[in-house]
């Protein structure tokens, strides 16, 4: 068919968390440039199933860039060559006929591979559990806009809240650091009135948890923001650092 492409895929295959994996070659034939990257893998998986080969396991859910599941390191970049998108929003028109595409899972000791391209990102959940929440006693529902918040502050908090927890920041960081992820939540809640009560214990607990999970130290390479599908900026990290210093100097915890 005209316009359709044939590609060679090099895909990380790993039976389970305990096995050692390796890159395997697969042919992706007759791929439409209008397909999404995940649809392309669906096509390859169909052909693998027909051949009796175990299909490639990969995480996916919404397929519209909002759940953050589709973790893939494509040709040496988190979510592939385009910016501000997730893998499910990447289309095959970003590749050319005959190209070899290498697909690897996120690499970080804090994100162990479960199978093929699927990694365990529960370290992120534990970081959020450590402090990325607000405690609200239930009662009468209050009107949504009863607390006035300045537009600029609301916008900045919203930008931080856009984080989908995909882990591309960790995957792209040379130090496998979760600092951008953490800072998005700390910054969002530090900006909003609802976040004030737990403001200091939050940042301390979350940073301690990041350390415990084995993520690296931020060295400000800024690769995280460059690959972030939601374009979460470096100023959130600066704000988190300020929050941390403030907490260390004055939080009730000894």
């Amino acid at each position: 068919m005209s316009g359709h492409m044939n590609l060679t895929l090099k895909v990380w295959r790993q039976k389970d968390a305990k096995s050692t994996g390796k890159l395997e070659n697969y042919e992706a034939k007759d791929i439409s440039p209008d397909m999404s990257f995940l649809e392309m893998i669906d096509v390859v998986n169909e052909s693998l199933i027909k051949k009796g080969v175990e299909p490639i396991a990969f995480d996916h859910d919404c397929r519209e860039g909002i759940c953050g599941a589709c973790s893939m390191y494509i040709n040496g970049e988190a979510h592939g060559p385009k910016r501000a998108i997730t893998t499910c929003q990447l289309h095959m028109r970003s590749f050319h006929d005959g190209e070899t595409i290498t697909i690897e899972p996120w690499r970080a000791n804090a994100f162990p591979v479960i199978k093929d391209l699927v990694v365990d990102r529960s370290a992120f959940d534990r970081i959020i559990q450590a402090g990325g929440y607000v405690s609200v006693n239930t009662g009468v529902t209050i009107d949504a806009n009863s607390i006035p918040i300045e537009k600029e502050i609301a916008d900045d908090a919203m930008d931080a809240a856009a984080c989908i927890g995909c882990g591309a920041c960790v995957a792209a960081c040379k130090n496998a650091s979760a600092t951008l992820f953490l800072s998005a939540k700390v910054s969002q809640l530090a900006l909003l009135p609802q976040g004030q009560a737990e403001r200091q214990i939050r940042v301390e607990a979350m940073i301690d948890q990041m350390e415990e999970e084995g993520f690296g130290n931020c060295t400000n390479t800024e690769a995280c923001s460059a690959v972030c599908p939601k374009e979460i900026g470096q100023h959130h990290i600066a704000r988190m650092n300020r929050e941390f210093f403030g907490a260390k100097l004055s939080s009730p915890k000894k």
Binding site: G76, R107, A108, N109, K174, N175, S177, A223, A226
Partner: peptide, 18 residues
Amino acid sequence: NKSARSVGYAVNNPGKTS
């Protein structure tokens, strides 16, 4: 930081982002 990633990438393109 080196020990936060024991298994590296087979193909990596960090020059495009940092």
